[in-house]
């Protein structure tokens, strides 16, 4: 069983702010971490390897410092990794990101199962996984909350729908995006850290890819363009209340009565 997991480095904090005077983004600290949802995808891969054997590779895309998340994946027990990095990939939207990843995946060799986290915490779109599957022309199942069984030909999963659970059997190769809590992610191991700290993380650049048309990557390959960014509109605050806890509570109780949320 060959498994490939797509992972991403995201800002360690979501506290991004916009300076209204200068229009400049303020990002406090430069902490980065692995997208938390990707940890579930890696854990899923590790669990599958325990029963089915095989190899797990991870692929990420980003600036050179994003190699850190691949290192972290090594510490969790992943076998191999690579980083797609090239200034020509910069400014990629969902489509260009998914296309770049799909090109990178083709460079990583044959695989049976591709795993993605449910979404990232910095983009929140949950769209890259399905688009990768389209570019690779393989079936995908999103919102997988449980893996029921698998053999050498297919995997059977539970897809979480709002009112139902759909049990789907999907032939390999395929892509699944996994829900949080499918398995509890293990912590990086110190032993593996020592063992893998010199393990190399190959870079994949545009010139390594099959399709080298720069119009398919980065900003040039992105149909969507950000026109501008701005702080969210403020509502006219009708009332600001201050006082002791007791005073505030009494006032709030009165207000809730007035608005008819509690009876007199």
């Amino acid at each position: 069983m060959n498994i490939l997991v797509c992972i991403k480095q995201v800002p360690g904090t979501t506290e991004v702010d916009l300076d209204e005077k200068t229009g400049v983004l303020k990002r406090d600290g430069i902490d980065s971490k692995m997208n938390p949802y990707d940890l579930y995808a890696i854990e899923t891969a590790l669990k599958i390897r325990e029963t089915q054997g095989g190899k797990i590779k991870v692929l990420s895309m980003g600036p050179p410092q994003a190699a850190q998340v691949i290192r972290e994946a090594y510490m969790m027990g992943v076998d191999e990794g690579a980083l797609l990095t090239d200034p020509k990939f910069a400014g990629a939207d969902v489509l260009a990101t998914a296309y770049t990843l799909s090109q990178g995946i083709r460079k990583m060799g044959d695989f049976d199962l591709l795993l993605c986290g449910k979404m990232t915490t910095d983009g929140d779109t949950a769209q890259v996984g399905p688009e990768i599957a389209e570019f690779l022309q393989i079936p995908h199942v999103s919102n997988v909350r449980k893996i029921l069984s698998m053999d050498e030909k297919a995997i059977t999963v539970e897809m979480d729908m709002p009112e139902t659970v759909e049990i789907q059997e999907v032939l390999f190769p395929c892509l699944i995006t996994v829900e949080k809590d499918i398995y509890t992610p293990r912590l990086p191991s110190f032993k593996l850290k020592l063992k893998t700290q010199t393990k190399e993380i190959p870079h994949i650049t545009l010139q390594d890819l099959e399709d080298q048309d720069i119009y398919h990557y980065g900003l040039n390959g992105s149909p969507t363009q950000v026109l501008k960014i701005f702080p969210p509109p403020k509502k006219e605050v009708s009332e600001v209340w201050t006082g002791t806890g007791e005073e505030l509570a009494r006032r709030l109780a009165e207000k809730l009565k007035e608005l008819k949320f509690i009876r007199e």
Binding site: R27, G123, V226, P231, P232
Partner: peptide
């Protein structure tokens, strides 16, 4: 960007 910013996209 997961933060306190709105983006206008075309």
């Amino acid at each position: 960007f997961g933060g306190n910013i709105m983006a206008h996209i075309h």
